[in-house]
Amino acid sequence: MSEGPLSRAARLLGHREAGHSLAIFRMAVGLIILHMLGALIWTESLAPIWMNPEDGGLRDQKVTQWLAVAVGAPAPSGVLALVAGAAAGALALTVGLGARIGALLTLQCLLALFSVHQSSGGGHDRLILNALWLLVLASSDRSLSLRSRLQTGRWWNDTPVAAWPRWLAVFQICLVYTATGLQKVNPEWFPWGGLEAVYRSLLLPSWARYDLSGWLGDIEPLLQAATALTWLWESSFFLVIAALYWRATRTRPGRARALSNRWDLRRAYLLIGIAMHLGLTALMELGPFGLISMSFYACMLSPDEWSAKLRRS
């Protein structure tokens, strides 16, 4: 007797695979957090943002998050303890030793830090927290890790781990892009508003890296095309989930499945995403948003694909 959909789903979630994709995701997240914390120190913004005025802060902070209260933030020692804890956890993630504990430590320290001054953050803070939560749940240090090296003498380790955290990471980034696309309903994103959204965004002094007002008007058609492409790409990003499903069931019939597998729809979305994030990073100061978004892309390639790529290179 065949199983019902719930039983099949329950069984599917027990699928195991090599942990290479999750390992690359883990290392990327660790490095991004270390870079973010380093940037806070380099830009001398730690004290003004997170401490009280008597310690060099902009304003008195109201602290309610349990860990922030426990370590005594926004006092300098408390803030520094949170930064040190987050950095230690991120280092554990990067090298792959005690990755679950490292992810949990960094997650809680960053939750506490971000709670102290909420108006100084952005979408990247929340995406970093999501990534960390997935890394708490995942066994991400089985491969490409110090743990693997110590336990087996090899960096590369094909020991299977649960696949569902990788699938959740894919779902998470698809949700981010699709939701942000579908919420762009204001006229500047559409022909009736002149498709001016990218043009206007690049002129915002809050986010622009350079003053582009001298020549941005000259490339209006290109910016209109970028606006339309951005909206279409974001709003339809959920198709990547379909593309991955079609890829996993490639032997079954269906025209959409055949077309998606023939052109590798997933790769097309990833290439556009990389180009978009690199372009935005070059022209706008958006913090680690582009990097943390792209770190999720690691999970869109299966361990076998990573294995083939890395061994080939």
């Binding site: 927290l129 999501n130 981010v176 204001n186």
Partner: peptide, 20 residues
């Protein structure tokens, strides 16, 4: 506790009167 709430409303409205 897990930091998982977000609407992902980003640049949904781009101002034409920013400030510097």
């Amino acid at each position: 506790h897990a930091g998982t709430r977000q609407s992902w409303r980003m640049f949904s409205r781009v101002a034409d009167r920013p400030a510097r």
